Amino acid sequence: MAHAGFIEKVFLNNNKLSGSFMYIENLIKMANDISAFFQSEPDRELAVGGVRDHISKFWDPRMRNQIKLYYQAGGEGLSDLAKEAINRLA
């Protein structure tokens, strides 16, 4: 799981994220769980696309925005696959 001190620092210093400390930990876990499912895909591009597509189709726009902001702040605790997919979200 992401380092709590890092998350607190990001959220306290970013008004767009403040008040969402516990919420982002759930989003990190969800993104990593989705990534774990696609990790067995031998084609990395298909795996990244699968994670990206899942987040795009099934996450509320507010959830997508929060995880993108978190990724842009460093994304500590996100798997490499999750980071790649989040980076490609529109």
Rank of each mutant, 00 (worst) to 15 (best):
Y23S: 09
A36P: 07
K68G: 09
D43G: 08
R62I: 13
A90M: 06
F11S: 00
A90K: 11
R44W: 07
K16P: 00
G5Q: 11
D33T: 15
F37R: 13
D43Q: 11
E25G: 06
F6M: 09
F6R: 08
I67W: 03
R88K: 11
K16M: 12
H3D: 13
N32G: 06
V10H: 03
S20E: 14
G50P: 06
D43E: 12
A36Q: 15
A2I: 04
Q39V: 10
S56P: 05
M63K: 13
K29F: 12
G5R: 12
A47N: 01
M22H: 08
M63S: 12
K16Q: 12
Y71C: 10
E41Q: 11
A73F: 08
G49R: 03
R44M: 04
N87A: 15
S79P: 04
G75R: 08
K68R: 12
D80A: 10
A73I: 08
F21V: 15
G77C: 01
S18H: 08
F11R: 00
A73Y: 10
N65W: 15
Y71K: 13
F37W: 15
E25I: 13
G49V: 01
I55T: 08
A31E: 04
N14S: 07
S20T: 14
D33H: 15
D80Y: 05
D33Q: 15
S35V: 13
P42N: 04
M22E: 14
Y70S: 00
D53V: 07
K9G: 05
N87Q: 11
Y23C: 00
D60N: 13
L81M: 06
A2H: 01
M30H: 15
D60W: 14
G49M: 02
N32D: 15
Y70W: 08
I34P: 01
E41T: 09
F38H: 11
F21N: 10
K16I: 09
G19C: 11
L69S: 05
Q66E: 12
K9E: 11
A82N: 03
H3A: 09
Y70R: 01
Q66A: 12
E45N: 07
P61H: 06
S20L: 15
R62L: 12
Q72R: 13
